[in-house]
Design a protein around this nucleic acid. Structure first.
Lengths: 192, 192
DNA sequence: CGCCGTTTTGATTTCATCTTAGAATCTACT
DNA sequence: AGTAGATTCTAAGATGAAATCAAAACGGCG
């Protein structure tokens, strides 16, 4: 283990940042707050991250990556022979689970996805966009299946679904059972 | 018209504030920016509003009031004899129209509604809560109609619908025709 | 016109924030 | 154990934001 000490605090910083970020939003997040959460002194952050933007950028890509992995895994488990309707249903459940994961990593995505003005520099935007596009594909397949209204704009429908799921996270932490129940509701609502 | 001059600039400030808030979020909004948008000097704001929080609070209550009025009007136009399904459908269309109104008043609600930590003091929270409750009633009626899944938690469904509509507003201003089309999509998606 | 309350200005204070830099401490390796 | 390098701390600088206030500008009314 040649590279450890730095990596562990780095992790701690990212988790703290994700938490604060999810709670306060981008502009509302102060680095002192993040440092406190990580048990560090303000100045020490800069050994690990070049700037606030860089840190937040990494939080975002991390969180998106996380959700992406979960969704991909769920889809692979379901096999590629599944109907578009079933695939979308599985993706919804996986996305919701990722969003409500204890680690706080998930919750961060939610806050940011729509206010990423200052993240232009980092590669975060690309990640978010790619993830959104994969959802477009899922929606389109479900539309062909007649699982979703076929005459509606795919991108609009995709945004509605993602927006509905986004509205699911709040101050209160949901139990896995509750998340499952919410997923049932979303699926029942969206897939007739 | 004994009370005019101040009121007109007051209006201007509120509009500017709504725009900036909608674009930058609460913490990201600087009062200098708001003042610029209103054609005023920073210090002049404090003649009209006691603090940033007070200003924000008024923007929110204003915007919620606006949406509330639109929805109520739409419901009254439809008559109280209408089915729960039809009433919900009308409310969705009205809410979306309010959200995308040119005046920028609508867009402001959307950004803030869920990050109102600093609004505790003002009466804004009460307004938001009341509006949300009226939506619960609409959803519940539609559930009895079998327009919506009846076994799902009303509050969850309500949040999903509001969240989906919230996801509808973005940087680009939508034309009334586009808003109508989006409304059609939402209604088709939500009411089977 | 010239006055008085209303409205706006512009300078100033206070404070939080991001960022930097050098000193201090710790860790891993010989 | 001792040392070099990696990690963290402390302190300070720079910027920008919220809030305050005396003084100036405005605007209707006698």
């Amino acid at each position: 283990m040649t590279l450890t000490k730095a990596d562990r605090t780095r992790r701690r910083i990212l988790e703290s940042a994700a938490t604060v970020f999810a709670a306060q939003g981008y502009a509302g997040t102060s680095l002192r707050h993040v440092a406190d959460g990580a048990g560090l002194q303000l100045g020490s952050l800069y050994f690990h991250f070049a700037s606030k933007d860089a840190l937040l950028g990494e939080v975002v890509t991390d969180a998106v990556q996380f959700a992406e992995d979960r969704v991909r895994a769920a889809l692979e488990a379901r096999g590629s022979g599944a109907t578009g309707r079933d695939r979308l249903s599985a993706a919804i459940r996986a996305h919701l689970q990722a969003l409500h994961e204890r680690s706080e990593r998930g919750a961060a995505v939610v806050r940011i996805v729509d206010l990423p003005r200052e993240l232009a520099a980092t590669g975060a935007r690309r990640h978010v966009r790619r993830y959104a596009q994969s959802w477009s594909a899922l929606v389109e397949a479900a539309q062909r299946d007649a699982g979703l209204p076929a005459d509606a704009d795919t991108v609009v429908v995709r945004n509605l679904i993602l927006g509905a799921m986004r509205a699911t996270v709040g101050p209160r932490q949901l139990s896995p059972a509750q998340v499952d129940s919410v997923a049932d509701t979303v699926i029942a609502l969206v897939l007739r």
